[in-house]
Amino acid sequence: MTTASPSSSAQAAREALAVRLMHLRKDAGLTGKELSARCGWHPAKTTRIQKGAMLPSDADIRTWCAACGADDQADDLIATARAVDSMYMEWRRLHRNGMRQVQEGWYALHEQTRHCRVYVSNLPPGFLQRPTFATALMEQITRFQGTPDDVAEAAAARVAPSRFLYQGGHLYVVLLEESVLRYPTADPHAMRGQLRYLLAVMPLASISLGIIPFTTQRTVWPLEAFYVHDDAMAVVETLTAEIKVTQPRAVADYAKAFAGLASMAVYGDAARALIQAAIDALE
């Protein structure tokens, strides 16, 4: 059993889990004392779990669900509980010793992933970045966060997963908002190289690249960048943190959002035309 997390976001997730467990109890028509009796523990434990003051163990959750006649919900709730304390990691904490180690962690994740769906609204994903672009980006991040400068090593580690585009067994389905092509994140030379690289990888069998045009009628609003790895985990990137989502229902929501975004994208020659137009604008 785990004590409360100091992260407010993790605590919010803990409280959301507590609410779901409380609703199971109420739907079963049980009082807290009745549930405690069925579970074989002190009522104070039930109170702590329902207040989000205690994170229940896997066994606690299975016992709770069995007492409520809701065994079918146990696996999802266990996945939620396991994710609570690790789901929200602040970038400054992750980058406290520099960015290289985090980028190497991404390499390991991509190595294990067979099917990766990526949506980005601000930047090309790391495995599609060229070294000059990645270096410019990571210099900006280091200045913003005030973390140790290991940009050269971090940039090399960031682009390293691009090797999986050329190895069998990996499939990347990437959706870019047209804004990604237009934001001058690096100098014009680096931007041209970056955009030309997108054109270069499009014929590869390992990648499907779609662009969502500015003019497309939205059925899914623009979202933060997210990566869905083998339907097992979604990684969401915000300004301040990396959020790892493993709850099956939440991962399914990201997959559903991705499908909606994919339906708005253009591919093939139409996508190439948008990339070329962005290159021409730099010229």
Rank of each mutant, 00 (worst) to 15 (best):
C39H: 10
S121N: 10
D58K: 09
Y107N: 11
W106H: 15
D72M: 09
R114S: 08
W91D: 09
G126W: 09
R100P: 13
H115K: 10
A66D: 15
Y107Q: 12
K45N: 10
G98F: 03
W106N: 14
E111F: 01
A74E: 02
V120D: 15
V84I: 11
M138C: 12
V84E: 04
M54Y: 08
Q103A: 05
A81H: 04
L94P: 04
G40Y: 03
R82E: 14
T63L: 14
M54L: 13
R100W: 10
H110M: 00
G98V: 00
A44W: 04
L94D: 07
M89P: 00
T47D: 09
V102Y: 08
G52R: 04
R93D: 15
W64G: 02
T63C: 13
D71A: 13
Q101R: 14
T132Y: 08
L77Y: 04
I49H: 03
I49W: 05
T80V: 07
A108I: 13
W91R: 10
H110Y: 08
G40A: 03
L94S: 11
D60Q: 05
Q73F: 06
A67Q: 00
M54H: 11
A66V: 09
G126M: 10
R48E: 12
I49L: 05
A136N: 04
A44C: 01
W64E: 12
K45Y: 05
G52F: 00
Q101S: 14
A74W: 01
P131E: 10
W64M: 11
V120L: 13
L94V: 10
L123E: 15
E104N: 08
L94Q: 10
A67I: 04
M138L: 15
A37H: 09
F133V: 03
A53V: 07
K45P: 06
